[in-house]
């Protein structure tokens, strides 16, 4: 697994971003880009070309599903959302999401899922 990969963390909660970053840093990742809404996420995606996107669904301005529709086939997107409905999960898969973690999550679940996605 390439720990040098750049990871874009898209979540409107700075708290959530910090928790995720902490988990990722603990697993040996070091290159992070953050954004707080879907619009910013698309801009950062274009500018940074990350190798992995951790994407929240419910975000202001442009929501995660819209972001996914635009970049879901171009990059590995792991959705991390508190929305747990099967239909939503199914929809993200259709738009190219490689995984789905329902919040709240624990460290192991996030690391396991990322390992699975990146290998």
């Amino acid at each position: 697994m390439d720990k040098n990969i750049k990871i874009l963390i898209a979540d409107d909660s700075a708290f959530m971003r910090k928790v995720l970053k902490d988990i990722l840093a603990g697993a040996g990742f070091s290159k992070f880009v953050e954004c707080g809404d879907g619009k910013e996420c698309l801009a950062k995606y274009e500018a940074e070309k990350p190798g992995l996107v951790l994407l929240d669904i419910i975000m202001p301005v442009v929501d995660g599903m819209e972001v996914l529709k635009k970049i879901g086939t171009a990059v590995k997107v792991l959705v991390i959302s508190a929305v747990g409905q099967d239909k939503i999960i199914e929809e993200t898969k259709q738009h190219g999401a490689v995984g789905y973690i329902v919040k709240p999550f624990d460290r192991k679940k996030v690391i396991d899922e990322i390992t699975k996605v990146l290998s």
Binding site: K6, E48, I57, E66, Q85, I88
Partner: peptide
């Protein structure tokens, strides 16, 4: 995470949005 909401109802922010190219603030990768 468990409430019987109708999942067909997509978030209402999901209106047509232009793709955003905010190159001004971008930094060489």
């Amino acid at each position: 995470g468990k409430s019987p909401r109708t999942p067909e109802e997509k978030p209402a922010t999901q209106r047509a949005q232009k793709p955003v190219e905010d190159t001004e603030t971008s930094v060489p990768s």
